[in-house]
């Protein structure tokens, strides 16, 4: 049987994340209570999104240095799957915010940063949709992708440091890791991050293969 080790590992880690994340012991904290379990899923979506968008950036740079439509395809698919992960991260975060901060949407710099990044990637998809010629589309959207990604990353890193944030580790709030992410949680948290990144990579791999098959069957 042809099973890749990383697919097996991802599947095992996802099951572990679901089981241990929902059934393991977590510290009893005021306000957070059981919602702290969301840490494994909410943060995991961001890690996965960032990993995919970084991949998209790499393939865009690769396309510009050596024009090849396969790199463009990979960059596009990574951006779109990262986008879905971002939506999931936003939804899990909104649920969490409702039960801890009392509202689905707050005027938090991290939330604003996320909303703007998602908008930027929507603009990327609109830009791609507006051009017919595949080479022109690949070149121009690669330029926009790099420009948008770098600006977004800088912005997401800079803005929470300029203003206050409700998130842990920003604006004077202590980070989770400082005192309440105990050893028990770390045992789930780190595998969970690897699991969700692996999951994103897996979906991306399948999508790319489907598109390649479509190209080879149509030509």
């Amino acid at each position: 049987m042809n099973i890749s080790w990383w697919k097996l590992g991802t599947a095992v880690l996802i099951i572990y994340t679901l089981v241990a994340g929902l059934m393991g012991t977590v510290p009893r904290l005021v306000v957070l209570n059981e919602t702290i379990r969301n840490l494994y899923y909410h943060v995991g979506m961001w890690f996965s999104m960032l990993a995919l968008w970084t991949g998209s950036l790499v393939f865009s740079i690769k396309y510009l240095s050596k024009p090849d439509l396969i790199s463009d395809l990979k960059a596009h698919k990574a951006a779109s799957i990262g986008f879905y992960m971002g939506i999931l991260g936003l939804l899990t975060g909104m649920l969490w915010a409702q039960f801890t901060w009392g509202r689905f949407w707050t005027n938090d710099p991290k939330l604003n940063g996320t909303a703007i990044s998602l908008l930027a990637y929507l603009a990327y998809f609109v830009l791609r949709g507006s051009m017919e010629d595949p080479m022109t589309r690949a070149r121009i959207s690669a330029v926009y992708n790099i420009f948008a990604f770098v600006l977004m990353i800088v912005f997401i890193q800079v803005l929470p440091r300029l203003t206050d944030s409700l998130h842990p580790g920003n604006g004077g709030n202590p980070a989770f890791g400082e005192y309440d992410l105990d050893r028990q949680m770390r045992l789930v948290f780190y595998p969970a991050m690897i699991a969700w990144i692996g999951m994103g990579y897996w979906i991306w791999d399948i999508r790319c293969r489907i598109e390649k098959l479509k190209i080879s069957t149509s030509s």
Binding site: A120, Y144, F147, A148, L151
Partner: peptide, 8 residues
């Protein structure tokens, strides 16, 4: 194209 990039 501009709006998301201008908001920062």
């Amino acid at each position: 194209l501009s709006f998301p990039l201008l908001i920062p």
